[in-house]
């Protein structure tokens, strides 16, 4: 009973800490937007101090709650829910096939495989289409106006973001469907009769890795050498020792 109470306290504390952090974040963002909006884009040390002092309570509350959380955790350790250990379905499937008579593969199994193939093809088509649309836009130099850089970037986002959204939705959908299909196939394979002779699971080994590694390291050293001897490092230094204010978001 006592244990449950402590866990409840921990849970309540975590809930309030999360809320407090979220509120802190929202206040910081609102504060910044308020200075920008009402100060018509003019920031000053005083304006920042004024706005953020109004939000001082949640901003101070979060670190206090965080410290309380650590102290609480020291006395009454909170057992986090661990990620369920789920074996790799693809490997389980390969192992299941190793024990079964593969000649007895049913139509249902073949249908599942076809489904997965179809999902992959659909995903590939969507990815290809979105990539083509975006690359056509990106490869057109006139879309990147020298005089209006920010406006050009916003226009590019109007093309990039929808492409990304479509790809993301499609990707998540295919991933879920693929996993479900693999499970269904696994169940079906388990029902197959056992084979007389077990086939071995082939594991891929990395050959030629060392050769590729050596070639690439040599290439890297050559590139570095050429860059160094032709004065490439000077440009890096120039960029690094001077503050380009726009590059760090100052304006």
């Amino acid at each position: 009973m006592k244990r449950i109470n402590i866990m409840t306290i921990q849970k309540i504390h975590r809930f309030f800490l999360s809320i407090s952090l979220a509120v802190t974040g929202i206040f910081l963002i609102i504060g910044c937007l308020m200075i920008y909006r009402f100060g018509a884009g003019t920031y000053s040390r005083e304006a920042v101090a004024d706005i953020f002092s109004a939000f001082a309570f949640p901003i101070c509350l979060s670190p206090i709650l965080a410290v309380i959380g650590w102290v609480l955790d020291c006395f009454f350790p909170y057992a986090d829910k661990k990620q369920k250990n789920k074996a790799d379905t693809a490997f389980l499937l390969a192992r299941a096939y190793g024990k079964k008579d593969t000649d007895a593969v049913s139509g249902e199994i073949l249908a599942e495989r076809k489904k997965r193939k179809l999902h992959t093809i659909v995903l590939a088509i969507v990815l290809a289409l979105t990539s083509i649309v975006f690359l056509i836009y990106a490869c057109n130099g006139s879309n990147f106006d020298r005089a209006e850089i920010n406006a050009s970037m916003i226009r590019a986002m109007w093309v990039l973001l929808p492409c990304l959204a479509v790809s993301f939705v499609c990707g998540v959908f295919v991933l879920y469907c693929r996993e479900k299909s693999l499970y269904r196939e696994l169940e079906l394979v388990r029902k197959l009769p056992d084979a007389e002779k077990q086939t071995e699971i082939v594991t891929k080994t990395d050959k030629n890795v060392t050769a590729v590694r050596i070639i690439l390291i040599a290439a890297a050293i050559v590139l570095l050498g050429i860059g160094l001897f032709t004065g490439g490092a000077a440009d890096v230094l120039t960029k690094a020792i001077n503050i380009c204010t726009e590059c760090i978001g100052l304006g």
Partner: peptide
């Protein structure tokens, strides 16, 4: 930052930064 800056700086900077990153 150096990688992005290297494109407008010239070939030698690109070689230098790519070499470092690859290494």
């Amino acid at each position: 930052g150096s990688l992005q800056g290297s494109f407008s700086a010239g070939k030698s900077t690109m070689f230098y930064v790519f070499g470092i990153l690859l290494l």
